[in-house]
Design a protein around this nucleic acid. Structure first.
Lengths: 181, 181
DNA sequence: TGGAGGTTTCTGTGAATACTGAAATGAAAG
DNA sequence: CTTTCATTTCAGTATTCACAGAAACCTCCA
């Protein structure tokens, strides 16, 4: 339980907040904290350092790192002349969130699309028609199809293109004749 | 524990999936299930019906409904000639997700923006400078500022405008001279 | 003012999840 | 081949979270 005083007040504040944030979005608190630590670290860290800095068990760090690697946002790297594994977070913020979004889409949205299609298919051949449920599920399906299609197009864009687009705002879109109403 | 057989197979499948989905995104499973039920219901339901249909305790339903009302996606309504409260979900899918997004922004993103600004401010006046952490936090802040600004602009748009925009895809954006790179 | 129907709050219990420490496993160096 | 150091797996423990049932609390009506 011996805390290492390595972190500055600012770093600690950020890491704790990031942990809470993760928890809100269904990510384990410790996993999110470790990611925050790696994200602001200027160099790859070894597991033991993480253990000392965050004051959690070594095995917990090991499992959490594995999960982060599963998400594709943390990588194992090797430091010359050191046998131990070191870990680093993806550095670019845009790439980071794109990776997370891709992974959540794959794990959660795609299965939902599949399920909605199944439900609608089953509904059409059911003995008891229930057209109201079917209509609602179709609405949901359309929504997800449209938004994921949109995401697919945007995700390939460079951060700079995205920020240019964002900064153009309403103006750009009026040029296209796609007004707000 | 007596299950009412009110639900069709399709309805049950959808509600269970929606519950799991909610859990993945940090929403209580039962809360999400109740919302799913109300969403596909053609009429407002009273708490007792929900209890019977989902097989959970009355008090659980009461608390979950309160939470859904807190999110602004479920409303209490009254049915003529019936003293009991009835509940209905927001019907329009686009409005529904916009409401959820607004609320998550308010609860989670805005506080994160505030915290990042605080951290950066504190970092500039710290005795020990730590410019690397500060730079990373600035990158995060820029990212959130840009994306939330973008969201603010889009959120006022009608579903039809959004879907028109989405369906135009790359073409539209090339017209603006905002290519992918 | 009492009572009936309905809703919410509260407290204890159960289940799920996160976490630790030890044991087992693996890998490089001698 | 053996020793040493690092990592992972495993099993038990603790903590958090969800839930049920009872009690308390409204509100309308007689």
């Amino acid at each position: 339980m011996a805390e290492e005083g390595k972190l500055t007040a600012v770093q600690e504040k950020f890491i704790l907040h990031w942990g809470e944030m993760g928890a809100q979005w269904g990510v384990n608190r410790t996993v999110a904290q470790i990611h925050a630590l790696l994200f602001i670290s200027p160099r790859p860290l070894q597991a033991e350092e993480i253990t000392a800095t965050l004051g959690v068990a070594r095995s917990n760090v090991s499992n959490s790192l594995k999960e982060l690697q599963g998400w594709g946002i943390v990588k194992r790297v090797h430091v010359m002349g050191d046998r131990r594994d070191h870990f680093e977070s993806m550095k670019d913020v845009w790439e980071l969130f794109r990776t997370i979004a891709d992974e959540r889409k794959k794990r959660e949205v795609d299965p939902t699309l599949a399920l909605l299609r199944e439900c609608i298919a089953e509904s059409t051949k059911a003995k008891t028609p229930d057209s109201h449920t079917e209509a609602k599920l179709r609405e949901l399906l359309s929504f997800f199809e449209l938004t994921t299609g949109w995401y697919q197009q945007l995700r390939g864009w460079s951060p700079s293109a995205l920020s240019r687009l964002a900064s153009m705002g309403d103006k750009a879109l009026k040029m296209l004749g796609v007004g707000p109403n």
